[in-house]
């Protein structure tokens, strides 16, 4: 397994101000792709290149990539013992004023008076931490946002806040990449990549990809075996 690549033959382009989705079953390599773009430890050994704004970023550390405007929201956000929501959000915020910190919490559907002083720790539910992580990303004003499973742990009534936030990021000219296997999330995108077994097996409009994903991938009996994928037949 050591020499077996987790993702391979990837060629993707993301234009400014667009919302993309990367869909695929569990284990397809979607989170690995996000970690590789972000330059996380454990995801830095690869062949090929990642280009941002015309410049190669392969040798840049995670914080340097973030400095260019790339960021990532984890599928399962980290817990920070003792670190308050306020400090967590302002740590990477472009504008560290209290007004901005409060505003981004409201944007994700959380009451600032209730949450600012709380710690980002186990006393918060996974869904609350997810929203707080998204708030920290909105405050950062990044240029490329990788949102890994943005709906996981989020209740249905709060999903609208998340989708609104994605639309606002798009309106601000930010590029959003949604890593998902949820149809509801996929439908927020304008263009989609279908990933299976570590590679992109198709791409196109949401209708095209979602139709195939819904009918074939969700019911797939040979998950992550793209050699059985009927390339060119079902999708096109």
């Amino acid at each position: 397994m050591k020499d077996k690549p987790i993702i391979h033959d990837i060629n993707m382009n993301f234009d400014a101000g667009m919302v993309y989705a990367v869909v695929g079953p569990n284990g397809a390599g979607k989170s690995t792709l996000a970690g590789t773009i972000m330059g996380l430890s454990g995801y830095r050994e690869y062949k090929g290149e990642i280009i941002f704004d015309g410049k190669k970023i392969d040798n840049l550390r995670t914080d340097e990539r973030a400095g260019l405007g790339i960021t990532l929201a984890w599928q399962e956000p980290a817990r920070f013992e003792g670190l308050t929501v306020e400090k967590f959000i302002t740590a990477g915020a472009a504008d560290k004023t209290p007004d901005t910190t409060r505003k981004v919490l409201v944007q994700v559907g959380l009451d600032p008076d209730e949450y600012l002083g709380r710690a980002v720790d186990k006393t918060l539910s996974g869904g609350e931490r997810k929203k707080i992580e998204l708030a920290s990303i909105i405050a950062m004003k990044p240029r490329l946002v990788l949102l890994d499973e943005p709906d996981s742990g989020i209740d249905v009534s709060s999903l609208e806040n998340i989708f609104e936030a994605i639309n606002e990021m798009k309106a601000a000219g930010q590029t959003v990449v949604l890593i998902t296997h949820s149809m509801a999330v996929l439908k927020q995108a304008e263009y989609s990549f279908l990933m299976c077994h570590g590679t992109i097996i198709d791409q196109g409009t949401i209708d095209k990809i979602s139709g195939y994903f819904e009918k074939k991938c969700i019911l797939c009996t040979h998950k992550n075996q793209p050699e059985k994928y009927e390339k060119g037949k079902s999708i096109k």
Binding site: L40, T62, D63, A66, T71, A78, L83, K87, A91
Partner: peptide, 25 residues
């Protein structure tokens, strides 16, 4: 924790400081 903060633009040292600050708060 560290990579979350680094993905917001904090350097490794800044991230460590903030994490320790939280632990000791």
């Amino acid at each position: 924790q560290m990579e979350t903060l680094m993905s917001r633009g904090l350097t490794e040292n800044e991230a460590v400081e903030l994490i320790i600050q939280g632990l000791l708060s």
